[in-house]
Amino acid sequence: MFDDFFSRALIAGIGVALVAGPLGCFIVWRRMAYFGDTMAHSALLGVALALLLEINLMIGVFGVAVAAALALIILQRRPTLPVDALLGILSHSTLALGLVLVGLMAWLRIDLLSYLFGDLLAVSTLDIGVIYGGGAVVLGVLCLIWHPLLAATVSEELAAAEGLKPARSRLIFMILMAAVIAISMKIVGVLLITSLLIIPAATARRFAQGPEQMAVLAAGLGVVVVVAGLYGSLEFDTPSGPSIVVAALVLFLLSLLRLATGRPKPQARQ
């Protein structure tokens, strides 16, 4: 089953979606979408460095994403610029640096588009192993820090006062985000990773009654979206990342329809 490129992509994609859903919920709750975007954009720099140093791509991406997150935390501590400006600068400069570096390495034949938008053909059996192994670790750690992280998401002040060490959970959470970016890059591409994190979570919000339920729903919706997107990608010969995001968008729009019909019907008054 693993010898067929499409099955490999499908299995890898499902693994990625299962991890991205719960993590994406926290990104939505903590309003960190642009933070995630910035980390993801730095991934291309990670690819370039990994090729240059001849190390594993995912390790390169993970390292650079963690470095970007740490840089952001440090820059935020000294209020030099508003956060959105900082994010904009870091997001685009790391992306540009990555592109320039890849361009400079003319001796390597690199298909840039496959890194930017994901590529069905790029997933190897080894990648599947890394995705499921890494994904299991990410989900395990997320379960361990779930309660303190959720408390810190509601209020860092409250969590700190009641002894839950919010700064530590926040840092661990960022490392988890970097890991998810690293393992999902081949499927979705660095430009669109954040949408795989956010859109299923945002869709799940309308149906969820509690945070835990929302996380499980987001994982499930993510799987649906990835499967639909990959089949679309195969069918129409489109890059996998954008196809998955379009599928996610369609599902999100459908959930809005459900919202519209969820209103009470106007009752005739006597």
Binding site: W29, V154, L158, L164, M214
Partner: peptide, 28 residues
């Protein structure tokens, strides 16, 4: 020391589905 804290202001993001019952076990 076991602390219980009611801060002066607290805003909970609406994207987080949180019932009163779930809020009770937020930190324990």
């Amino acid at each position: 020391l076991r602390v219980g804290y009611v801060p002066q202001t607290l805003h909970i993001n609406w994207t987080l589905p949180l019932t009163v019952r779930r809020l009770m076990s937020l930190t324990g």
